[in-house]
Design a protein around this nucleic acid. Structure first.
Length: 859
RNA sequence: GGGCGCAUAGCUCAGCGGUAGAGCGCUGCUCUUACAAAGCAGAUGUCGGCGGUUCGAAUCCGUCUGUGCCCA
């Protein structure tokens, strides 16, 4: 066994073996209770970034633990078809050939997109294998699969028949580059420097000043609105004023939604190009005048015809300025501008006919499921974000002017008929019938994911066994994407059964300085690079250790390196155990046969099992990773392993007992670590135990064994050892240098630990000619050392003096507290006891330190 | 503009009413027979400022400053 763990040699073969043996393949016919997580489907065009690696690590840990606990665990993988993103990719490819999608036609384009998926899609799936994701590959799904498409058609028809899907002309978010409608959540608002220009409309007494950041839209104004109680404009209400640069006049209308405090208190109304104005227009029966085409080019006749919207903006301002109509300009004027989340083009509000989901009843059910506790959100603080969203959700625009996606199953007849065609139904035939050209929002199909992947609408054994799923784990930034959509559809389609009982929300991955990591940032790290350099376990452990509930996760290469070191430490500790005959065979010896060290570590081991279990149930990954780190490194590797050395070296029956306990401790520790660091633990555990695989080993159970006395005993030993080591360091002794010492341990629990103490502090027996040059009284025991020569009295005096001062300060503080009547009267008994304990400890320390100082030879 | 959150050791973060913690970094000394990707020992903080509540505040309340996120 080499002295260093080399993940690169281990990981690939192990993963292949796991998959071959079918450990991750769930059985719907199993008698075991189910545990299910579906992966929020990544985008088919995407590749694994740290955010995925992070969430996958946590999901994998949850599922692996449950599998070990005896659940029929299913972690279901797959991808969504990412309508816009994928179509963009294929259009780029076509563009390189000098073609557009219209050149080859819809059918060929869709065919070509499938080819693209075949060739380039799903890179992320291979990357998931590198990370060690224990997913059931036999159940891999894609939102455009036949079964999932049938689910889309089924629910569309149900919603349509229930009146929850309708068609309407509204202002939507339009991307002039992607040439499609977008839903609200596909628009990102960013602050931009723009200008706010104030324009005078009308003439003389009939003039009124309005302000806008989008001057070009004035060409489509059909009114000016003021507040009905605004006296400044009362005389103008109902009058017609002249709209500059046009030959039109427009009315001044009174509308309560106008804020008289903002700007001049008068607003221009462009119903076809602004959602608020559209509403005003509806209330006042104003005409909707569209002035741009789908690419954002001006279509009204006149000097601006054919100009791009941004060119038109400056042209319009210029023309108005010439006419002396610009009364004020504020520049720069910072305001939020919506951008297409896919291509970052500035979104244009556009009046158009689209299909919508009426979300009110669905969102209410989604909110109630959390409100009444059927579904829990972790951490709880994020509930409010969820409620804010579902309680104020606007109707959802689901039609997209794309070719890649589920085509809307609506057929229009020659006489204005509108027919919704279900999955098993034949579309109407005959002259004049045609299908809607648009496809559905990708999220419409991913919202069905928790049950469409299990076979719905068919009543499959998978659906019966694994729905509802258990946990949805995802970033808090996409509560609105997955969570809300899956909740709405799950409750609607599955008879009010929520798709999962727990929503575990994580933060975002950031770099080591807390900066946001994104693909476009130079700080973006490819997790595969780190896995190559340090192993998948190191990346996984680092991510898990950063996973404080709901909080962002900073990660840096140094930390991954630290986790690699941890894996290496586990490797070497196990290596030591193997070299010394640690075993898991046979029953654990009874408590009477165990040494105090054995009882201590078993006590701590079981406490750790209980602690880790509790933290898993609470989705406290950072804390459980930390607890495991602390227990295994600080307690097992640093102390227990060192304590076994003198015993193992001495041999005999005591050594046999220790070999068994050492085997037990490592066996359990490796099993506890496995869900987070699956590879190194598998390699070690199979060697240590001869078992088939830790993947299917039993999850450790707390035996209930605790031994407070042993814990105290070992703590005292640690204290004494540390004290001697400190003294040695102060005296400039080399770590390996043996020193003769005489120990007086009578009357303390250290009597049984003389061997351990000598081993850990490197103290040899006092032989003839022993002459103590320093005496350390510690906790009732005395350690006399022969340093064979002068010791550095000054260094020792300095240090003891410092400790003494600290102890005296402590004593004074404790005395002050205990002398405080109010404290004694009002504080809890436990708090007072604690202070009494501190007082006693301080008194004892002062005594000891004073004695040590007195024992120093005078210079 | 509205809402939410965060300010703790050089860095990244735990702790959230009873003596300030971890990892990394830093300073010494060591290749002590599992491990130098390590061991041992050590240093480091008026817990953002100011007020208040309390016997007692990093922890609760108010306020200011700084900073981040979401929504419009």
């Amino acid at each position: 066994m080499p002295t260093q763990y080399t993940p690169a040699q281990v990981e690939g073969p192990l993963y292949e073996r796991w998959v071959e043996r079918g450990y991750f393949t769930a059985d719907a016919k199993s008698e075991k209770p189910p545990y299910t997580i579906v992966i929020p489907p990544p985008n088919v065009t995407g590749s694994l970034h740290l955010g995925h690696a992070f969430q996958h690590t946590l999901m994998d840990a949850l599922v692996r633990r449950k599998r070990m606990q005896g659940y029929e665990a299913l972690w279901l993988p797959g991808m969504d078809h990412a309508g816009i993103a994928t179509q963009n990719k294929v259009e780029q490819q076509l563009a390189e050939e000098g073609l557009s999608r219209h050149d080859i036609g819809r059918e060929a384009f869709v065919e070509r997109t499938w080819q693209w998926k075949q060739e380039y899609g799903g890179r992320i799936l291979g990357q998931m294998k590198r990370l060690g994701d224990g997913v059931d590959w036999s159940r891999e799904r894609f939102t455009m699969d036949e079964g999932l498409s049938a689910a889309v058609l089924t629910i569309f028809k149900q919603l349509f028949e229930d009146g929850l899907i309708y068609r309407a002309e509204r202002i939507i978010n339009w991307c002039p580059r992607c040439l499609t409608a977008l839903s609200d959540i596909e628009v990102e608002h960013e602050d931009r420097d723009g200008e706010l220009v104030s324009i005078r409309y009308g003439e003389g007494d009939d003039s009124i000043v309005v302000a806008t950041t989008r001057a070009e839209t004035m060409l489509g104004d059909t009114a000016v609105a003021v507040h009905p109680e605004d006296e400044r404009y009362a005389h103008l209400i109902g009058r017609q004023i002249k709209l500059p640069l046009t030959d039109r006049t427009i009315p001044v209308v009174a509308d309560e939604h106008v804020d008289p405090e903002f700007g001049t208190g008068a607003v221009k109304v462009t119903p076809a190009h602004d959602p608020n104005d559209f509403e005003i227009g509806r209330r006042h029966d104003l005409p909707n005048l569209t002035i741009m085409d789908e690419r954002g080019v001006i279509t009204v006749h006149g000097p601006f015809l054919g100009l791009d919207r941004f060119e038109a903006r400056s042209a319009v301002v210029g023309a108005l300025r010439e006419q002396g109509r610009i009364v004020a300009e504020k520049r720069p004027y910072v305001h939020a501008v919506g951008h297409c989340s896919r291509c970052h083009t500035v979104v244009e509000p556009r009046l158009s006919m689209q299909w919508w989901v009426k979300v009110a009843p669905l969102a209410e059910a989604a909110g109630d499921a959390v409100r009444d506790g059927r579904v829990q959100i972790h951490p709880k603080e994020l509930e409010r974000r969820y409620f804010d969203w579902v309680d104020n959700m606007h109707d959802w625009c689901i039609s997209r002017q794309l070719w890649w996606g589920h085509r809307i199953p609506i057929w229009y007849g020659p006489d204005g008929e509108v027919v919704c065609v279900g999955p098993d139904e034949k579309p109407p035939t005959g002259e004049g019938w045609r299908q809607d050209e648009d496809v559905l929002d990708t999220w419409f199909s991913s919202g069905l994911w928790p049950f469409s992947t299990l076979g719905w609408p068919e009543q499959t054994p998978d659906l019966a066994k694994f729905y509802p799923t258990d946990v949805l784990l995802t970033g808090h930034d996409i509560i609105f994407f997955w969570v809300a959509r899956m909740m709405m559809f799950g409750l609607y389609a599955m008879d009010g059964q929520a798709p999962f009982h727990t929503i575990a929300l994580t933060g975002l991955v950031r770099d080591e300085f807390g900066k946001k990591m994104s693909k476009s940032n130079p700080n973006a790290v490819d997790p595969l690079d780190w896995m190559d350099a340090y192993g998948a376990d190191a990346v996984r452990y680092t991510l898990a250790k950063g996973a404080n509930p709901g909080a962002d996760v900073p990660i840096g290469e140094d930390w991954v390196q630290g986790s690699r070191n941890f894996c290496n430490k586990i490797w070497n500790a196990t290596r030591f155990a193997l070299m010394n005959g640690a075993t898991v065979s046979g029953p654990l010896p009874a408590a009477e046969q165990l040494s105090a060290a054995d009882r201590w570590i078993l006590s701590r081991l079981n406490a750790t099992v209980a602690e880790v279990d509790g933290l898993y149930e609470d989705y406290q990954f950072a804390k459980l990773a930390d607890a495991l780190f602390h227990f295994s490194w600080d307690e097992v590797f640093d102390w227990y392993v060192e304590l076994t050395k003198p015993v193992l070296m001495a041999g005999g029956p005591a050594a046999d007992v220790t070999r068994r306990v050492l085997g037990e401790v490592l066996d359990v520790t490796l099993r506890l670590l496995h869900p987070i660091t699956p590879f190194v633990t598998e390699a070690l555990w199979t060697t240590l135990t001869g078992g088939e695989s830790v993947v299917v080993a039993a999850w450790p159970a707390d035996s209930g064994f605790r031994d407070a006395a042993a814990e105290k005993e070992i703590e005292l030993l640690q204290q004494v050892v540390t004290e001697v080591r400190r003294f040695r360091t102060e005296q400039g002794l080399k770590p390996g240098q043996k020193v003769a010492a005489q120990l007086s341990l009578e009357g303390t629990s250290l009597v049984a630990h003389e061997g351990a103490l000598r081993s850990l502090a490197r103290l040899t027996m006092a032989e003839e000619g022993f002459h103590a040059t320093a005496t350390l009284p510690i906790a009732g025991a005395t350690v006399a050392l022969d340093l064979s020569g002068a010791i550095d009295v000054e260094a020792e005096r300095k240090r003891l003096g410092k400790d003494l001062a600290a102890a005296e300060k402590e004593l004074a503080q404790a005395q002050a507290k205990l002398g405080n009547e109010a404290f004694l009267a009002k504080a809890a008994e436990a708090a007072i006891d604690k202070i009494r304990g501190r007082l006693a400890k301080a008194t004892e320390d002062i005594e000891r330190l004073t004695a040590q100082l007195a024992a120093l030879p005078t210079a």
